[in-house]
């Protein structure tokens, strides 16, 4: 048990977390959630459902057609339809309804994905292995198709699976998504969204079609979710249970930590969230004897910490790190 080992290990883990494709997918999903919740005040508690729709739409299409771009289109169209299906009945109503319907719908998507009935497409509980849909993406890579590449302690394949190629694409997408969200929310369109977040009746009285704006917001944020879903499963595999309620809650924690209604909040928050998580896992693993907490129980403890952390964050610093208390995304 060597402290030096603990620290090298910790900082190596920090680095790989910051490079990680999963982290990138969280940032993208959180940007979408920011458009929903941060800027429009839509309480979408089913962002994981959007990710799952994107993941299934992409993976199933590519699995059967081996056409990458068709997969992306299907994923995005799926997310739009999902947003419309959830938005049309609820967006004219009080916010709670959207919350209930989105959390429920995300759960339903997961249950359907897990169900044996559609197993020929979804793989049921086993999901869809990455190898079934990742080849067309790899084929787009300018990097060597095979082989590993090492930078410092980080040794990943050039192109296959959870690769450098995927990392480059994922983090470029993060940059693009941040740029898009910046352009959108700083525009007059974004101003209307912020108005709606404050008081939709006031905005209505000024001649804006609030329902259309809310629908647009739900769709756009959902598209970010679908993209995040694609990125996420390209690094791993499609598994319905990996994108459940808990993932949405994590995304809220990321967003609120960084600061809702800020452009860089999702990025900063996601980094911090993962660093804290990695720190907790490494530290508990190192310092707490396994007779007290088994390896299996460490994630459970970290989830408890995440839950309590989310509570404390919302209570004591709802504006997050970058946010402005006066411009709080929470209505009332």
């Amino acid at each position: 048990m060597d402290i030096g080992f603990y620290f090298t290990n910790l900082f190596t883990d920090f680095g790989s977390t910051i490079l990680s494709v999963i982290t990138a997918s969280y940032v993208i999903a959180a940007i979408g959630l920011n458009i929903h919740f941060g800027f429009t005040g839509l309480l979408n508690i089913g962002q994981a459902g959007f990710m799952l729709i994107g993941a299934y739409g992409f993976a199933i299409t590519v699995r059967f057609t081996q056409n990458f771009w068709l997969g992306v289109v299907v994923a995005l169209v799926g997310a739009v339809l999902f947003a419309l299906a959830l938005g049309l009945p609820t967006l004219k109503l009080r916010g709670d309804y959207l919350a209930i319907v989105t959390i429920a719908a995300a759960e339903i998507v997961r249950l359907i994905g897990d169900n044996q009935l559609l197993a020929p497409f979804t793989g049921g509980t086993f999901g869809i292995p990455g190898s079934a849909f990742s080849k067309p993406f790899a084929a787009l890579s300018p990097l060597p198709q095979i082989g590993l590449f090492q930078i410092g302690p980080y040794n990943y394949p050039f192109t296959e699976g959870d690769s450098w190629w995927l990392r480059i694409v994922a983090w470029s997408l993060v940059a693009v998504c941040i740029a898009i969200s910046f352009l959108l929310v700083r525009s007059p369109w974004g101003r209307v969204l912020r108005g709606i977040r404050e008081d939709e009746d006031a905005v209505r009285s000024l001649g804006k079609n609030v329902t259309v704006y809310k629908t647009q917001s739900l769709v756009i944020g959902g598209l970010f979710g679908a993209v995040a879903g694609i990125v996420n499963v390209l690094a791993t595999s499609v598994s319905a249970d990996a994108m459940g309620r808990t993932l949405t809650f994590e995304l809220y924690t990321c967003l609120l930590l960084g600061g809702a209604a800020t452009v860089f909040g999702p990025l900063l928050g996601t980094f911090l969230y993962w660093l804290v998580l990695v720190f907790l896992r490494d530290s508990i693993g190192f310092w707490v004897p396994s007779s007290v907490l088994s390896q299996q129980q460490i994630p459970q403890v970290t989830w408890i910490v995440v839950g309590i952390g989310l509570m404390l964050l919302v209570i004591f610093r709802p504006q997050g790190i970058l946010g402005n208390k006066k411009e709080l995304a929470f209505g009332d």
């Binding site: 101003r191 209307v192 912020r194 977040r197 008081d199 009285s205 001649g207 006066k326």
Partner: peptide, 17 residues
């Protein structure tokens, strides 16, 4: 129904059609 978390100017700009 002033939009409290927005600036006075943003409130005004929102009024334009």
């Amino acid at each position: 129904k002033a939009l409290s978390a927005m600036t006075v100017m943003d409130n005004m700009l929102l009024g334009s059609q």
